[in-house]
């Protein structure tokens, strides 16, 4: 009798553990999904909503320096205050429009230069023998081991009027007075292309590595000269890499602050610097937030359109 009871209890226990492990297993899946979900929620969506909230507030001389979203009136009614003046202000003031256009122009040209330099580099790495390939990839990643700020300061030393490049050219006798390179758009292009080139090369490399080289032979066999093969086979098949690399360069370059500030000085208008000035010099948080939101829309909307088109194309 007793033994039977114990056996039944054991069975209960066993089934309890089985159920526990099963529910743990299924909850593992939800945990794995939950980690990135909460990460994005707390570190992206919530800050974004705060910025969005500030962008529709009014600037006040107070702490914090903007009006609250919700107001309790005296008779206990909640009032929501939304002010869109900041956005209309952005549109009406030429400075912001010009700065946006200039930012997009600089980052577009930088992206194209990165592509022109990065594509042959990535192709060369893919085509090199495996041992050399790893060394070359390491060299691409190597600059990341030094602080980004230090590298920009190094460029200041190189490009300055009394900098290494000018001194060297004068020593060679090619020029008599120093070339003016610092505090110009040229310096900003140099800085952005230099900094973001690896972000172009790495996705291109990942994409090209999968490229089937017999396709080139097939094209040649069917009568295509090397340039035609490139435009009809290689280029279309590496397009995903080109798009990924270009986005990785274009998006951060548009909002770039450090490079235009240090290398461009006051001569190059980019949206990152305007944003910085609104926050720190003008202490106008609502306008600064509006600038940030507008920048986000400027970048996200074209991407969403692109993704939409891509999604349609991939459907059979």
């Amino acid at each position: 009798m007793n033994e039977d009871l114990i056996a039944i209890q054991d069975e209960h226990k066993a089934s309890f553990f089985v159920r526990l492990s099963r529910s743990l297993q299924s909850s593992w899946k939800s945990i794995v999904v939950a980690i990135p979900f909460f990460w994005l929620l707390f570190f992206f969506l919530v800050p974004f909503l705060i910025v969005l909230k500030i962008s529709v507030a009014e600037a006040l001389i107070a702490s914090p320096p903007f009006s609250p979203l919700l107001d309790w009136s005296e008779d206990g009614i909640v009032m929501i205050r939304l002010v869109f003046d900041n956005f209309t202000y952005l549109w009406e003031d030429d400075l912001y429009v010009i700065t946006y256009i200039n930012s997009v122009k600089i980052s577009t040209i930088s992206t194209l230069i990165c592509l022109l330099i990065g594509y042959p580099i990535a192709y060369g790495i893919v085509r090199s023998p495996p041992t050399t390939r790893n060394i070359l990839l390491l060299l691409i990643i190597l600059p990341f081991w030094t602080s980004f700020l230090l590298r920009v300061y190094a460029w200041m030393g190189l490009l300055a009027d009394q900098g290494t490049i000018n001194n060297f050219l004068i020593w060679l006798g090619l020029i008599e007075k120093p070339l003016r390179m610092m505090y110009s758009e040229f310096a900003v292009y140099v800085g952005i292309v230099y900094t973001y080139l690896p972000f172009m090369i790495l996705p291109l490399y990942a994409n090209m590595e999968k490229l089937d080289m017999t396709l080139h032979e097939a094209a040649a066999d069917l009568g295509a000269k090397p340039t035609i093969t490139f435009f009809s086979v290689t280029l279309p098949l590496t397009m995903p890499g080109i798009v990924a690399g270009s986005l990785l360069v274009f998006i951060p370059a548009t909002g770039e602050f450090v490079i235009p500030d240090l290398l461009g000085g006051g001569n190059v208008l980019m949206i990152g610097r305007v944003l910085f000035n609104e926050f720190n010099s003008n202490n106008d948080w609502p306008v600064a937030s509006a600038v940030a939101i507008a920048l986000l829309l400027l970048l996200v909307i074209p991407m969403m359109i692109y993704q939409h088109i891509q999604g349609k194309e991939n459907q059979p």
Partner: peptide, 28 residues
Amino acid sequence: PYERPVNMMFQSYALFPHMNVEANVAYG
């Protein structure tokens, strides 16, 4: 190879993945 009066059928077929059947055949 692109000037030889010779065509090859590859072991892996080497069809262009981004083109449909018609475009593959029309390529040459």
